[in-house]
């Protein structure tokens, strides 16, 4: 209790300074999933039948910026953003949005946040209800949030206009849309309630290189026009380099590095970041790599390595890394890394 009050005091002190800047603040987020049912765990004698999908993650998204969240599959990036919206349960940690904290974790407590933060899905075709028309899909947010008294037809037309789709599509069903059209409908739906923040989960996955620019340019244009903030979750490093202001790299559910995108791409601090950047194939036959880069695989969440969780794959591993887990600390102004021997220093 005393601890709680103390942190509140500190937090409110910080809030005085940063309230204007930070739109979303996540502090110490942890998400655990049960691996065994209650009875089975009891029978198997498992003391801790959980895995940590997200562990000890703190970050802030500033108003008007684009924050990139990068990691390989299983790194917890999607789970993290779903936890922000209360779609998966947060085990511990705090979420503040626009200055107010989400106190309890009921659907009711999250409802206002779900009005201000929209989620854009990886597969827009699958994220639209298959038996609902485009009109009904993009006006549904108003009905859910008790704003059905508006002129929904006008709203629907305006939204389609904003994403550059013809009004004729309003009566189409999702399976009648092309991939690009479905993605634009997804954007329109995300925009419906005029949110402050849009979380986009792999916005370019499955798109050809000649059309992924269309979606990203549209998102960029809308950001300028409406003052939106974005969190973009992706594994596509070449894309995130162009479209994000700041970046966090996740590994086994933790942030291993965070900082301004340009700085990270210019000089990564964490060996994992370096390996990740080096693994991206260069579309230039003169720049072939003779070395495969990062060896090995991402370890299982069931069996987290001791010490630094990256040490088994790290090219710069030292004795300390095998026993002592590093914490995410500020290495350079605005740049954090979880490494005992950050690369820029050596």
């Amino acid at each position: 209790m005393r601890w709680h009050q103390a942190t509140l005091l500190v937090a409110s002190g910080c809030a005085m300074v940063e309230a204007q800047a930070n739109l979303l603040e996540v502090e110490g987020a942890r998400v655990r999933f049960r691996t065994l049912g209650f009875l089975r765990a009891l029978i198997a004698g498992a003391k801790d039948p959980y895995i940590d999908a997200v562990l000890d993650v703190s970050f802030a998204v500033r108003a008007g910026e684009t924050f990139g969240l990068v990691g390989e599959s299983g790194s917890g990036k999607t789970t993290l953003v779903r936890a922000v919206l209360g779609l998966v349960d947060l085990w511990s940690g705090r979420i503040r949005f626009d200055g107010s904290e989400i106190v309890d974790r009921s659907d009711a407590a999250f409802k206002p946040i779900r009005r201000q933060i929209s989620l854009m899905f990886q597969d827009p075709q699958a994220s639209l209800s298959p038996r609902k028309t485009v009109r009904s899909s993009i006006t549904e947010p108003f009905i859910i949030h008790n704003m059905a008294d508006r002129d929904l037809e006008a709203e629907a037309r305006e939204l389609l206009g904003m994403v550059g789709l013809p009004v004729g599509l309003l009566d189409n069903y999702p399976h009648q849309l092309s991939g690009g059209q479905a993605r634009r409908v997804g954007v329109a739906r995300a925009l419906a309630l005029r949110p402050k923040l849009i979380i986009a989960d792999e916005p370019t996955a499955g798109l050809d290189v000649s059309v992924q620019g269309e979606v990203l340019n549209l998102m960029n244009e809308l950001q300028g026009r409406l003052g939106l903030s974005y969190v973009i979750v992706t594994h596509n490093l070449p894309v995130i380099r162009h479209v994000s202001d700041r970046l966090a790299i996740m590994y086994l559910g933790r942030f291993v590095e965070e900082g301004p995108t340009a700085a990270i791409f210019a000089r990564p601090l964490h060996p994992y970041t370096l390996g990740l950047l080096g693994a991206v194939p260069q579309p230039d036959p003169d720049k072939r790599r003779e070395e495969p880069g990062l060896m090995g695989e991402v370890p299982s969440l069931n069996n987290r390595p001791r010490g630094c969780e990256f040490h088994a794959r790290c090219l710069y591993v030292q004795e300390r890394c095998r026993v002592d887990a590093p914490v995410l600390t500020e290495v350079a102004p605005g740049r954090r890394a979880a490494c005992h021997f950050p690369l820029a220093g050596s």
């Binding site: 992924q212 620019g213 990203l216 070449p238 479209v243 230039d284």
Partner: peptide, 21 residues
Amino acid sequence: RLLLECDPARIAATTRRLPTI
């Protein structure tokens, strides 16, 4: 040529306006 131009990995200077076909 356009396909090569569109590849974000080939665009040296960062840009928010990506080329498309």
